[in-house]
Design a protein around this nucleic acid. Sequence first.
DNA 1: CTGGTTTATCGTAATTAAACGATAAGAGAA
DNA 2: TTCTCTTATCGTTTAATTACGATAAACCAG
Lengths: 100, 100
Amino acid sequence: MDKKAPKKHDESLDPEFLASVCKALGHPARVSIMQFLRNTDHCICGEIVELLPLAQSTVSQHLKCLKDAGLIKGEIEGPRTCYCVNKDILNKFLQMAGAL
Amino acid sequence: MDKKAPKKHDESLDPEFLASVCKALGHPARVSIMQFLRNTDHCICGEIVELLPLAQSTVSQHLKCLKDAGLIKGEIEGPRTCYCVNKDILNKFLQMAGAL
DNA sequence: CTGGTTTATCGTAATTAAACGATAAGAGAA
DNA sequence: TTCTCTTATCGTTTAATTACGATAAACCAG
């Protein structure tokens, strides 16, 4: 009945979105990564591997998980990759969580 | 070295706590339950089963998950159980999440 | 081009989560 | 007591997560 958005189903209450972000934050290593990225402000990459007591491949997997959820962005800089927090998604998450 | 709290390790930054709460919220059904409990204000029980397209045993499992994480409290009232949000834990979660 | 550095992906094994039906346990009503 | 209603738990199957080592891919330095 509206002009646009034929089946926009009010994402601001969408349990799928909130659940997917929470799921990504549902592991201590990934929470630590988010806290670290927040504190450094700068984008960092390989330092995260040193930070955690996990194999490099495992850390890379966790980073992918956070990226898939939209919580972080990765930028390739030469031979390495720099990650930083995606504040848009993070804020949206905080807003939805706050509505609980 | 302090009088109390021999090994209090600053829970306000503890990734374990935040991760465990997020993990509990990492499923659409459980997010829906939290939203529903928030909106009703009243404690509810069997209505949650009708709300979701899931078997009663599955819903009960999700409720247990939320309860184990501390997000909800359950009270036995006669033959039925009433659940309500545990605001202490929820607020603690929101505070920690906000620090991200 | 060759070698070193950095990160992502593949393959795999072990653990955990999700869903269901069936069953048990508890409280009231008849 | 017996029957019904409500909810939790058990047992099971299927799917997803977590972790690792090994390997591939991309980039620079020499």
